[in-house]
């Protein structure tokens, strides 16, 4: 699909579509997020469909513990990337943190070593704390990200993130982990020889692991993490699409999220406003008209506040957007502005 030349009469005007994301060929990571119930999964699936038309291979990952990708496409997905029915280059993956940890515990033996090696020595600690730490979702999702970074088999990866709190913690994870590991490696360099003499006497760590081995694994993990961190902060490689509805709380949450993203230096320049009502002229539905009035108020505020963002308006449809066909129709509206029937 050749990109159509967009001639803007006014250079400052940001077009109300996500075409710029489709046109930006260097993008590798796209995050789709927003406070619950605004249509994240629907929008991320729609965006994935549009991207699949413009790229060689696309992967859609859901990091939400309450998985909706299976619902959206009427197809069961798992922790291995699976091709979506009806598409040749679009795959989806649902990361279930509890599931993967249970698998790991059940397998024991070799499976454990492999999985632990994948997480670079942190796995032993996490095994004990697996069910108690709230951040285990983020850690598992992040382990998946690391694998993808190393393998680089997809041209672009879309993350359908969990509601806001989780999202930002997930993005914080690289920085936090990097600092923690940097500190640990510094300490290990300082105390390593001393610890070695103590541990050497005992014949190895309680887990039977070699201290040096664990430290070197941590070091390589830290390097991968800092690499991912750099990629996330690069505007050419990563972007965040904010989903919201024209209501006060969602708007407040979106503003908060955008400010936090700019603090983490993660690029964001697109907002998708979902569930817009377009009641027919002369309609006597009180609720529709009242809601439309309220939405119009917040839409004006959005236009004023986010002048340098691509603000896409998506209508509230009469039926649920589930299944391939409906999602494709919905995805068209991401690139062609929706014209309400008048």
């Amino acid at each position: 699909m050749s990109s159509t030349a967009m001639i803007n009469g006014d250079d400052d005007l940001m077009e109300p579509t996500l075409q710029s994301i489709l046109d930006q060929k260097t993008l590798r990571w796209i995050f789709v997020g927003g406070k619950g119930g605004v249509g994240k999964t629907t929008t991320s699936c729609a965006l994935a469909i549009q991207l699949a038309k413009a790229r060689k291979s696309v992967l859609l990952i859901s990091t939400d513990p309450a998985h909706n990708l299976s619902d959206a496409f009427n197809q069961k997905f798992g922790k291995d990337a699976r091709l979506i029915e009806g598409f040749t280059n679009l795959s989806a993956m649902e990361i279930d943190p509890n599931g993967s940890i249970q698998d790991v515990l059940a397998a024991g033996g070799e499976g454990v070593d492999e999985a632990m090696a994948g997480m670079g020595g942190m796995g032993n600690m996490m095994q004990d704390l697996a069910f108690s730490i709230p951040g285990v979702d983020e850690a598992m999702s992040f382990a998946e990200v690391l694998k993808q970074v190393k393998s680089m088999s997809y041209e672009v990866i879309i993350f359908d993130t969990a509601p806001t709190g989780h999202t930002l913690r997930f993005l914080q994870f690289p920085t936090v982990l990097e600092k923690a590991l940097a500190k640990l490696s510094q300490l290990s360099q300082q105390f390593g020889p001393m610890l070695n003499s103590i541990i050497g006497a005992r014949g190895g760590l309680p887990n039977g692991q070699n201290l040096d081995e664990m430290l070197s694994k941590m070091e390589s993990l830290r390097e991968t993490i800092s690499e991912v961190n750099t990629q996330f902060k690069d505007a050419d490689l990563t972007t965040f699409v904010c989903i919201c509805i024209p209501e006060f709380l969602s708007l407040y949450e979106t503003e908060r999220m955008i400010q936090e993203l700019s603090n983490y230096e993660i690029d964001t320049h697109s907002i998708v406003v979902n569930q817009l009502l377009f009641p027919k002229a002369g309609s006597d539905c009180q609720q529709c008209n009242a809601r439309r009035k309220m939405q119009k108020k917040y839409l004006d505020q959005i236009e004023e506040l986010y002048e340098d963002f691509n603000v896409v308006r998506m209508p509230l449809l009469v039926e649920e957007v589930r299944g391939k066909e409906k999602l494709e129709k919905f995805s068209e509206m991401l690139v062609q502005t929706y014209q309400p029937p008048q």
Binding site: Y252, K297, D300, L305
Partner: peptide
């Protein structure tokens, strides 16, 4: 008022 003038409040 953040409800009525959200853009101004946010700025």
């Amino acid at each position: 008022s953040s409800q009525d003038e959200f853009a101004k409040w946010a700025k």
